[in-house]
Simulated assay, not measured.
Amino acid sequence: MRCDKKDLLLYAVTDRAWLGDKTLAWQVEESLKGGATMIQLREKHLDEDTFHEEALELQALCRRYGVPFLINDDVELAVAVNADGVHVGQHDMEAGQVREKIGPDKILGVSAQTVEQALKAQAAGADYLGVGAVFPTGTKDDADAVSYDTLRAICETVDIPVVAIGGIGAHNVQALAGSGICGIAVVSAIYGQPDIQQAARTLRAKTEEMISQ
């Protein structure tokens, strides 16, 4: 199994918005210390060389903590640095093509908003689905809303694990109980908090509790 359900419990997606005087590596390590189970490097505006260096640095960090390291969108970079996998959206490279490029042993995550998209991604070789936005979110302006019923329908339809994403935090994660997800993917709920490590720890505990119900 390329992607274990437990790896998807607390899936942290990076964002440079809250760096201040800190480095991204410092932020990511704080989230790992707090219990993040998977890291996705997401960059929209970095030049190629800096992105490559950053990917290598974060990958080394994730290996030290025994946590899978994925890159968002950039399939070529994921292959170049030998990342554990890649995550693509509906407007990025088609999942089947991504699978061909990364090979059979890497993790492939695909964003989905409908049952039809979810089934298509599964058929194309996705290992897990990121479904959302389940709540309103400030970190992704173009995110479409996905209802609780649709989230549950996707979980019931596919055989691969599903993580919810979009506007999730310690205050509302409980509302996802019973949907069938195996974890949550978050950005600001960890990296936008004053104490990243504590935020991750709290969120992980609340997510474990929600999933066990």
Rank of each mutant, 00 (worst) to 15 (best):
R2C: 12
D4H: 13
K5F: 03
D7Y: 10
D7L: 00
L8A: 04
L8W: 05
L9Y: 05
V13I: 15
R16Q: 09
G20Q: 05
L24E: 11
A25Q: 13
A25I: 14
A25H: 12
A25P: 10
A25W: 13
V28L: 04
E30L: 12
E30R: 15
S31I: 04
T37P: 00
M38L: 15
R42P: 11
E43A: 09
L46R: 02
D47H: 12
D47S: 12
E48D: 13
E48S: 15
D49G: 12
T50K: 14
F51K: 15
E53N: 15
A55I: 10
A55V: 10
A55S: 12
E57A: 15
L58E: 04
Q59D: 09
Q59R: 13
Q59S: 08
Q59P: 06
A60M: 13
A60C: 13
R63F: 11
R64Q: 13
Y65L: 05
P68D: 06
F69R: 00
L70M: 13
I71K: 01
D73E: 12
L77W: 09
A78M: 06
A83Q: 04
D84L: 07
G85I: 03
G85V: 07
G85A: 05
V86Y: 09
V86I: 11
G89P: 00
G89T: 04
Q90L: 08
E94K: 14
E94L: 13
A95H: 08
Q97I: 15
R99N: 03
E100Q: 15
I102W: 10
I107D: 02
I107F: 10
L108K: 02
V110R: 10
V110H: 06
A112K: 03
T114V: 02
Q117V: 10
K120R: 14
K120W: 10
A121Q: 04
Q122A: 04
G125H: 01
A126T: 04
Y128I: 02
V131G: 04
G132P: 01
A133N: 04
T137M: 10
T139P: 01
D141Y: 11
Y148K: 09
D149G: 07
D149A: 13
T150D: 10
A153C: 07
I154M: 04
C155D: 03
E156S: 06
E156C: 03
T157C: 06
I160K: 14
I160Q: 12
V162N: 01
V163E: 04
V163F: 11
G167W: 02
G169C: 12
H171K: 14
Q174G: 09
A175Y: 10
L176W: 00
A177Y: 01
A177W: 02
G178Y: 10
C182T: 11
G183C: 06
V186P: 07
V186E: 04
V187D: 02
S188E: 11
S188R: 14
A189M: 01
Y191Q: 00
Y191L: 06
Q198K: 15
A199N: 06
T202G: 03
T202S: 11
L203M: 07
R204C: 02
R204H: 07
R204Q: 09
A205V: 05
K206W: 07
T207Y: 01
T207K: 00
Q213Y: 13
